[in-house]
């Protein structure tokens, strides 16, 4: 009954956990990807471009100063440090700041104008742990609002399209772009109804398109064809993703990247337990690709006649391997 899954080499949830996440991802490294503040610090220290962090809120006491800290900002994104799947993220497109908090107006992507009280409530909700992975107290990031290049924006209904790259030992093995839709309410979550486009590692062209696990040809809201895309700055995207994976001791990793029109590829976040729907978007399974990487590493080890650390591979080697094989 599972013959077709085997034929495609689909990586199932059980194998994902027991063969890849548990043996290859060090639990102690998780905080660096689960906590966006730590990810940001790590990125800044290693010259990886990531969104500007305006300020953080770590306690209820800091809420008093919250209003004044928005004074010089034109736009911002409010994020829980340990949120998952884009929950609790609030995008502010415009801020009309006033000395009086009750007169300050925020223009958010979901409602048109939002009062300062609503913003403060949202920040305190994040602090209370409403959006954090296990309901514990959380911290809040107020970050720069990123933009995306036209090519991807044309295929998105509001929101911010991003690119997810899955890396195994720093070698990019599979990628897709996630396009927000009306159904996903501007979010990039596949299981909330965003569109996933599988991308060839070789050149960033489209291999397949899905929404809610079903194949589609055109964007459900915009009716534009999804298969003409060729993601620009593709090598830069792959390079950034591979560099990110060097930062943390997580060898089976998902990296989310936004291509900003001015700044180029920017690290959005990393994920130690990347989802499996990417296979459906690519019409290909992960297993044979992961196996190819494994064999490559083994042959390297044998050739060197010693156990080599895969991290000894150069960035170019990793990217070349990915683009030639996948």
């Amino acid at each position: 009954m599972f013959a077709y899954l085997k034929k495609f080499g689909i990586l199932g949830n059980n194998a994902r956990i027991s063969d890849f996440i548990l043996p290859h991802n060090k639990r102690s490294a998780y905080p660096f990807v689960d906590n966006k503040i730590l990810t940001h610090e790590l990125a800044v220290k290693n010259n990886i471009s990531s969104p500007n962090l305006y300020f953080t809120v770590g306690s209820y006491g800091e809420l008093k100063k919250l209003h004044t800290r928005f004074k010089d900002l034109k736009s911002a994104v409010i994020k829980p440090a340990r949120g998952s799947q884009g929950n609790g993220i609030l995008v502010i497109n415009d801020i009309q700041w006033d000395e009086d908090p009750s007169k300050t107006k925020f223009l958010t992507s979901r409602k048109n104008t939002t009062s300062y009280a609503d913003i403060e409530y949202h920040v305190s909700s994040i602090l209370s742990g409403l959006y954090s992975l296990n309901g514990e107290m959380d911290q809040v990031l107020i970050q720069e609002k990123l933009d995306s290049i036209e090519e991807l924006k044309l295929l998105s209904f509001q929101g911010l399209p991003d690119i997810r790259v899955i890396l195994f030992y720093g070698i990019p093995v599979m990628a897709m772009t996630r396009l927000p839709t009306k159904l996903s309410q501007g979010r990039g979550n596949l299981h909330q109804g965003a569109v996933g486009l599988g991308l060839k590692i070789k050149d960033g062209t489209v291999t397949g398109a899905i929404q809610n696990n079903k194949n589609i040809k055109t964007h459900p809201d915009l009716n534009t064809s999804l298969f003409n895309l060729k993601v620009p700055q593709w090598l830069a995207v792959l390079n950034l993703s591979s560099k990110c994976s060097d930062l943390v001791n997580i060898r089976y990793l998902g990296v989310d990247i936004v291509i900003d029109p001015k700044k180029g590829p920017i690290l959005l976040e990393m994920n130690a337990r990347p989802g499996l729907s990417i296979q459906l978007a690519n019409k290909a399974g992960l297993l044979p690709r992961l196996e190819t990487v494994n064999n490559f590493l083994k042959s390297k080890t044998n050739a060197a006649n010693k156990s080599i650390d895969p991290y000894d591979l150069t960035l170019k080697e990793k990217i070349d391997f990915g683009t030639t094989h996948f």
């Binding site: 009954m1 599972f2 077709y4 899954l5 495609f8 689909i10 199932g12 949830n13 059980n14 194998a15 027991s18 063969d19 899905i210 696990n213 079903k214 194949n215 499996l276 729907s277 296979q279 459906l280 019409k283």
Partner: peptide
């Protein structure tokens, strides 16, 4: 049970989109 690495029944349906192209 924890040593089982095969597919879950739900995955049969989840990835059924793959069959369309064949």
């Amino acid at each position: 049970i924890g040593s089982y690495k095969g597919y879950r029944l739900s995955e049969y349906f989840r990835f059924s989109g793959l069959k369309d192209n064949n």
